[in-house]
Simulated scan of single mutants.
Amino acid sequence: MMAVAVSVRNVKKTYHGSPSIDALKNISFDIHHNEFFTLLGPSGCGKTTLLRLIAGFEDLTAGKLHLFEQNISHLPPEKRPVNTVFQHYALFPHMTIIENVAFGLRRLGKTENEANTAAEKMLELVHLDDFATRMPKQLSGGQQQRVALARALAPQPKVLLLDEPLSALDLKLRQNMRLELKRLQRETGITFVFVTHDQEEALAMSDRIAVMSAGKVQQIAKPDEIYETPANRFVADFIGDANFYDASIVKSENDVTTYQIGNGVHLKGPLRPNMPDNAKVTLFVRPEKISIINFSTLELVSGEIKDIVYLGSSTDYQIELNSSLSIVVRNENQQNGLAIAKPGDKVSLRIDPTSIRILESENS
């Protein structure tokens, strides 16, 4: 059984005012030791508030927080064995890189020699040992972020909190830093709790993801589970792209259920043996799970291409199934990068029944 690094129990956070705002609404879950755990959600969902509660920068309204079984609910920030890396690096501009990294260690009572030795090891870990005597202004944004990471890791905290640390970097740097962060977490064995609104970032780095909305945790699972089997429509819609349809069950037989969407369009999906005909559900299917093919049979869904969006490695096709219904298909581009069809083309779609997911309608 995995050791628990952070235990969140019945945590509430209310900001009193006119009106009062419930930023967190009675949430409970555990973060495992040596885990890269991500809090993911849109702005205002409560993810940064929760991170600040763990760090001790905010006070709990109700509930408890434990760190490795120690109740830290009311400990001041300096008494908690955690460190935080923020979006802004906050390096001391008048100190060299090694002095920045060693600063916190000296404040903890380390001798200058001990602090510098530990700082050198951290700079080596983040691949900046050749930059030890430089000043922050002589480093790029990505290098400064790695210095901030080295400084936070140097005291060997039990948990490292990361509040959208990559959002100020350009796309290429963000992609490189994802790999760096995951490598650092793996090599140090420290529990990372990472906050982001970027779904791709969360999927790329996390061992588990907590998707949050309106102060509540909607789902906690591994990245592939979050993407492939979301718990509800919010998660399905927030993580990646999806086609959603209100549907009714036509019939169930031979391990397949036939669903009707729109005006007479039928899709074959997962078997729902215990639901009556005409039961209402919501279907969703990822655009990349659908294939455009150049032949037609009665078993396939057909339509007309209305729009094409070139995305580099892939192309999105908006296909009209009938006057009130459309679907987005994403196909990987071929070697020549040319689209496989053009607007106005009549096409058929192959949708594997196992790729269609079911979300119960609220009124079903």
Rank of each mutant, 00 (worst) to 15 (best):
V285S: 06
P273Y: 12
T282N: 10
I249C: 09
V256N: 01
F244K: 00
N263S: 15
Q260N: 15
P287D: 06
S213V: 01
N232V: 10
Y259N: 02
V217L: 06
Y245S: 04
V217P: 00
K222G: 08
V250H: 08
P270W: 03
E228H: 13
I292G: 01
T258L: 13
I226L: 14
A279H: 15
E228V: 07
M205I: 13
T282Q: 12
F234T: 07
D246E: 15
F284I: 08
V250T: 12
A247I: 10
K268L: 15
L271V: 14
G240F: 05
E225G: 07
D207N: 09
V256M: 04
I293T: 02
F244R: 06
V256W: 00
V256T: 13
D241K: 13
I292Q: 03
V250Q: 10
Y259K: 02
D237W: 05
V211P: 00
D241Y: 09
D241S: 14
F284K: 06
P276I: 07
G264M: 12
S291N: 15
I292V: 15
A279T: 15
Y259L: 04
P276D: 06
A236P: 12
Y227N: 12
I226A: 10
I290M: 14
S248N: 15
I293E: 04
I261P: 01
G264W: 13
V235A: 01
N274D: 15
H266F: 13
G215N: 10
P270C: 08
T257R: 00
G240R: 03
A242E: 05
I220G: 11
Y245M: 08
G262K: 03
G264E: 13
D277C: 00
A231D: 10
P230Q: 12
M275A: 13
T282Y: 01
P276K: 15
F244W: 05
K289Y: 10
I220K: 03
P223K: 05
Y245F: 15
M205L: 11
D207Q: 09
S248T: 14
G269C: 06
S252A: 08
D241E: 12
K216R: 08
M205N: 01
L271F: 14
A214N: 14
R208N: 09
A231F: 08
V250L: 13
V281K: 01
S213F: 08
I261M: 04
F238R: 02
L271W: 09
R272M: 15
G215Y: 07
Y259R: 01
R233D: 11
D255H: 14
G262P: 02
P273V: 10
E228G: 04
I209C: 01
I292T: 03
N232W: 11
S252C: 11
L267E: 00
I292P: 00
Y245H: 13
V256P: 01
S206G: 07
V281E: 10
T257M: 03
A214H: 14
E253H: 14
V281P: 08
P287Y: 05
A236Q: 10
Y259G: 02
G264C: 11
Q219V: 10
P230A: 09
N278I: 03
E288V: 09
